[in-house]
Amino acid sequence: MSEDVLLSVKNLSKTFSKPLGLGDKFANLMGAGRKPETVRAVDDLSFDLRPGEALGLVGESGCGKSTVARLIMGLLSQTSGQIEYRNTPTSQMSAHDLLKIQMVFQDPYSSLNPRMRIGDQIREAINVHNIVPKAERDAYMASIFEQCGIDDSLTKRYPHQFSGGQRQRFGIARALAMQPDLVICDEPVAALDVSIQAQIINLFMDLRKQKNLAYLFISHDLSVVRHLCDRVAVMYLGRIVEQGPVDQVLDNPRHPYTQALKASSPKISTGKRNFEPIRGEIPSPLDPPSGCHFHPRCPKANEQCLREMPKPQRLSETMSISCHLAT
């Protein structure tokens, strides 16, 4: 494994299962062999992230994007697979080292403690982990606030006194105060107004330039990802179907799902309602389709797609795709 990999996710899987009810347990005692219902939220996922790189993770809602973020942060524990940060599995890292990975949450309304003044929430994190010496803390906080575009005088307020955009700035400031190398952004702009989205995206871009941050940027919005990311991975029902540089994947998608996703996103520039929704519903993850998960909705699906699960194949140094039809 090469030296310059910051985060490496290998064959990551997460299965959620619903515990058996009393009736089923009893039936099992009698030899019925009922199994709990399981959902493979994340299925054999692998990707690498280099220092200072921004990787976009896109897909429909329910495809497991947020689960990936929570697994990396250790908020959930994986069923199988490895998450390594600088070649060390995250499960073996100390709390202090784990601060290098921070997360910005989707909902700025619920990700800040409603009963604590904004400034105190950020100060607490700095104090607890002794990020900077006591004498420098005030100056350090001021510099963080300035970088995030927060006026110093607002820090004595409570979260409910702010708009979504301002709250998200606080969420970013709190993550940034920990001096991370990697920030996991779980749809950080999805809950914001479009005009505010642009500001926050610009903030993310500025911070990245200043601090050489790496981002794992989870979004369902292709245009946001195109704007912000170097590489993109497209997820469908827990699997990555296509992965590669942003311009290649989004301008010239190879996987039928990516093509459909691109066609389905509305574009204002053309002035026409020329987007086509992907036909069919996203299948139930409780009972995913056989073979390639996308085959019931794929316009080009054939016999093979129905039977075999496509393996990721490298198209070039940076591109990989999981499709029987891509050559």
Binding site: M73, L99, H129
Partner: peptide, 11 residues
């Protein structure tokens, strides 16, 4: 989510 956030701050 603020509890998740607190866990991410490794409190």
């Amino acid at each position: 989510e603020y509890i998740d956030a607190a866990r991410c701050l490794r409190y």
